[in-house]
Nucleic acid binder design. Structure first.
Lengths: 137, 137
DNA sequence: TCCAATACCTCTAGTCTCTAGAGCAATATA
DNA sequence: TATATTGCTCTAGAGACTAGAGGTATTGGA
């Protein structure tokens, strides 16, 4: 039996976050000690590690909830889980593309800056005038 | 004189968002019509376009505030503005690198999925067992 | 065994950047 | 003039936590 602090240390999920996950229905309400403190089993530890891992990969709470519910029906085909992962992959790729355009734009802006007065500052001017940008964004 | 709706159409910033920016002190309180409706000048339009542009580039409200206050002292050197842009560029690069690792991980997870039962689903297994990942994350 | 330190409890509110809705007033158009 | 559209304020909600107040349990050392 682990205390919430133990669980936190082992998974790297902060204590208030664990309670938050419980509230959101991601983990079930654990047993309690006589003094009303949460006591966790090894199963709870695994579940939380799963959640942590999903969050690290950028999945939303809802996506993780769905995966958990899928994983509780081991007989069904796993197309659902596959779909969630694929959709997320697509989102990640779009985000990368966006950020790359942004990187480009910022590089251009920064490289034009000569460090003199604000009046001529390319950073300020570029922000004021979209026309100075290379791409739409 | 522009109404808030005109301003919204011209800048692409939604009406409630404009009011929110006013509340946050990003734009000054505009004049009002006799019936208490906001009326904006061309200067307000430029300021809002500046903010919009900054937000599109991913700058925080605070960073934009700082840039605005810098731009109001045109005699000072622009190292401040330059620093803000450079720091942000660095953040963007870090984010891109993170997302790329993630993309890689997700690709691997998805490609292993055979579409059969959950029991053998690589998506679920990968989330349950960090050891199946290639990198730390 | 007692005391202090630490960890835990609940509850509320705050973070950030908006977005949505209720209920009502002003303005524009036919 | 009647109606449609747009505007107003205020409050609450989104997502995923985080922080703090005020109090209780548990643990380790003297």
């Amino acid at each position: 039996m682990l205390t919430i602090g133990d669980l936190s240390k082992r998974t790297g999920v902060k204590v208030p976050t664990i309670r938050y996950y419980e509230q959101m229905g991601l983990i079930s309400e654990p047993e309690r000690s006589e003094g009303n403190q949460r006591r966790y089993s090894k199963t709870d530890l695994e579940r939380l590690a799963f959640i942590r891992h999903g969050r690290d990969l950028g999945l939303t709470i809802d996506a993780i909830k769905e995966l958990i519910s899928l994983s509780q029906h081991p007989d069904r085909p796993c197309v659902g889980a596959d779909r969630i992962a694929k959709e997320h992959l697509e989102d990640v790729r779009i985000k990368i593309a966006q950020l790359k355009r942004l990187e480009h734009e910022l590089e251009r802006i920064v490289s034009h800056c000569d460090g003199h007065s604000i009046e001529d500052c390319y950073v300020i001017r570029a922000l004021s005038d979209h026309g100075l940008c290379e791409h739409e964004h």
